[in-house]
Design a protein around this nucleic acid. Structure first.
Lengths: 111, 111
DNA sequence: GGCGTATAGGTAGAATAGCGAGGTATTATG
DNA sequence: CATAATACCTCGCTATTCTACCTATACGCC
């Protein structure tokens, strides 16, 4: 019954991954670490969510991947945004702002 | 290919319904209308989402329902928050703030 | 040398949410 | 009398996320 569950990300995952990848080529494992660090441990991205998401984004033509060697000397799949991915990120951010704005309107409603 | 799709609510639906119901007993159809109005048409709650959600919230003991007659003279199922529902709403709002805060941190990250 | 941990990749199956499409019935309006 | 709006509902599909697994390599430590 201990409620220490790892906080989940409701549909924002794609946007967050695209945003991190937009900062420069980065491998999957690194994306998860970055998201966790920047969010101050709020988001704890599971590998079972991470990798399927990366493949999904690649399939949709928003990310492209390239195998390279990391600083730590192992093989890693480095992802970067395509032009389509950059557009997608823009539109997702825009929609996110509208959505949070709409939610705020409702939450602000007084009794 | 016209992109006039009805905007969706990513996991915020329960919170929004609870919030509207917290304003006073209201029937399902009215909840959908209110959400749409207050959000300035951003959220267009479909009935196929609405009613299953209401039943879900009732099953979990967050809403209680009562049949009454509406102002327009028909039968309607009026929902109001239980004590548990009030707690749930509080915690969902709190979590929502944390989540949007965490997302903001990541989106704010400069190139 | 051997062991554990962190790093790096992945899959499979289950649960869940939301949506589209369909249905019923009543009241109001032209 | 037909249509729109109100009010309730269900079924089946899809997409997303999670849990639980699996593999392999590099590094530090005993």
């Amino acid at each position: 019954m201990s409620e220490e569950r790892a906080e989940l990300l409701k549909g924002t995952l794609d946007m967050l991954i695209l945003k991190i990848a937009a900062l420069g080529p980065i491998h999957g494992y690194g994306i998860a670490q970055r998201i966790q660090q920047i969010s101050r441990d709020f988001f704890q991205l599971q590998q079972g969510s991470l990798y399927p998401a990366l493949h999904r984004l690649e399939d949709r033509g928003w990310l492209k991947a390239e195998w390279k060697v990391t600083e730590t000397g192992r093989e890693g799949k480095f992802y970067s945004l395509t032009r389509k991915g950059r557009k997608q990120l823009q539109s997702e951010v825009e929609n996110w702002k509208k959505l949070t704005g709409a939610v705020a309107l409702i939450l602000r409603t007084a009794e």
